[in-house]
Write a protein that binds this DNA or RNA. Structure first.
Length: 208
DNA sequence: ACATTAATTGTGT
DNA sequence: ACACAATTAATGT
């Protein structure tokens, strides 16, 4: 685990902190499509992403879902830091998009690190800001973009995260993540296919 | 190889 | 949004 820590966070955290993370943290390997935490569950630790990608989404009271953003290598889930605000239950759902590795740090440890290690504090702020920027981006597209552009952005982002230009997904699932309906997605995809931006197969979309 | 069934996608109203 | 048709994949015999 020390190896991974040094590689990813070696020039972010000081040596002492790395050692301490290695001591209390656990390295977890997560298969694809694994739900790591659901809405309302107690947060038990803070994740530091080592590899892979994790999808963070929100759900409303009717069980309708909306994709917020992805966590990738070197990221941490800033929303878990809400524990500081006295909230210990997750407001979000985290499902792995790819097989992923991450280091879980128990939540109790983290408080003293803030005063002890300046680098930890900097890391918190930095990742907080990155998350916030991503959130604002998705908020913008929700408010100002049409669904067609949102769909295209979604597919491009997914392609980037997965590293392939073939997306293995159904129209239904896309609709859920964008909080739209299957029929609408199908029709938009069809249009995008006719304009040559994508190719449609069953359970598969090829981006051009 | 064939039939049956389930899941996904396409289309008209 | 709904209903239904068409297509494709999965499974059993």
């Amino acid at each position: 685990m020390i190896l991974e820590l040094k590689k990813l966070f070696g020039n972010v955290f000081e040596e002492d902190l790395i050692q301490e993370i290695a001591k209390v943290g656990t390295l977890k390997e997560i298969p694809e499509d694994f739900m790591m935490i659901d809405i309302g569950e107690k947060i038990k630790g803070v994740p530091l992403m080592v590899s892979g990608a994790i999808k963070i989404s929100r759900e409303n009271e009717n069980g309708e879902e909306l994709l917020l953003y992805y966590l990738e290598e070197g990221d941490s889930c800033t929303l878990t830091f809400a524990w500081e605000m006295g909230e210990t239950k997750s407001k979000i759902r985290a499902v792995s998009e790819l097989p992923s590795k991450l280091i879980m740090v128990p939540i109790q440890r983290i408080q003293d690190w803030e005063s002890k290690y300046p680098s930890w504090r900097r890391f918190l702020f930095r990742s907080y800001q990155i998350r916030m920027d991503e959130l604002i981006d998705t908020l913008d597209s929700l408010a100002f973009d049409g669904l067609e552009k949102r769909l295209m952005d979604y597919m491009v982002e997914k392609k980037r995260v997965n590293g392939k230009n073939e997306l293995l997904i159904t129209h239904q699932n896309i609709a859920l993540e964008l909080h739209s309906s299957r029929v609408v997605i199908s029709r938009l995809l069809k249009k995008l296919e006719q304009t040559g931006k994508i190719q449609l197969k069953r359970n598969k979309i090829i981006i051009i």
